[in-house]
Amino acid sequence: MSDAEIKVSAEGLMRQTGTYKPPRDPMQIVRWTLLFMGAVVMVMPLVYMLSASMKYPHEMFEMNIIPREPTFENYALVLSDGRFLQWFVNSLIIAIATTVSAVFFDALVGYTLCKFDFRGRYIIFIAILSTLMIPTEMLVLPWYMMSLHFGWLDTYWGIMFPGLMTAFGTFLMKQFFETVPDDFLEAARIDGLNEFQIWWSVAMPLVTPALSALAIFIFLGNWTAFIWPLIVTTDQSLYTLPVGLTTFSVEQSVQWELIMTGAALATIPTLIVFLVFQRYIIRGVAMAGLKG
């Protein structure tokens, strides 16, 4: 083996074990610096938003990032009428309920389509998968008419019902259940568990990383959803955070420091959750993205 070969295979070993440290050559420093600058640019809009939310109106249009007289007055003002809190609670309830339902049913359907053999399985799989091609925007009109007809306008149920199951999640969970060996399930069957128990207490625990990845995706999707809640709600007390924020910002017109405060209030909770569960979330997103 030549020196070069030894070096390369050692590097490969370290890459795999995670102990690899590339040499500190000048190229590497340039690369890092550029990446760092890029990262700063990426978060700049968030920084400016937070900075503006802590400025007094007269300082608002100056370029300094750190406010000369930082204040929480804007937050007090925005929160004072209780609407933001209400919208926040609405969004939370809706996102959690939808996530629980979608994860439960997507896993159940994915599991059934993966582990059961019965006539019509393939057709159902294709049928569910085909709904991926139907854009939400096409369905909003009929959903709206349904809601009108059944009195679902301005109700939590009306906001939630379209998202109670997802084709994407079903497909994803089916992929993940492929990795669960049939022997495990067979063993449980011999132990006398019924099919629901097998799914719930044997198969599900084996795919928890996938479940949490799916949960993150669905939660984020519902937390930021805009067009359907915008259409189905007109009663301010039922708005979700994004819809409320739109209304609020239009009302405020020029008071940008208040608009930025509203935007910050809508953003900060997810940022905090992210900072706490960072590794988990990134791994989950990568996993869902690669399998899906």
């Binding site: 440290k21 890092w32 910002s249 509203g262 953003t267 992210f274």
Partner: peptide, 26 residues
């Protein structure tokens, strides 16, 4: 890149978690 890899990655990822409506106004 290894140096502060996790931090850089987090910074790049951060905007993905924002609400489109909030960022549109920003």
């Amino acid at each position: 890149t290894r140096f502060l890899h996790g931090t850089l990655r987090a910074l790049y990822f951060l905007p993905f978690l924002t609400t489109a409506v909030a960022m549109a106004w920003v």
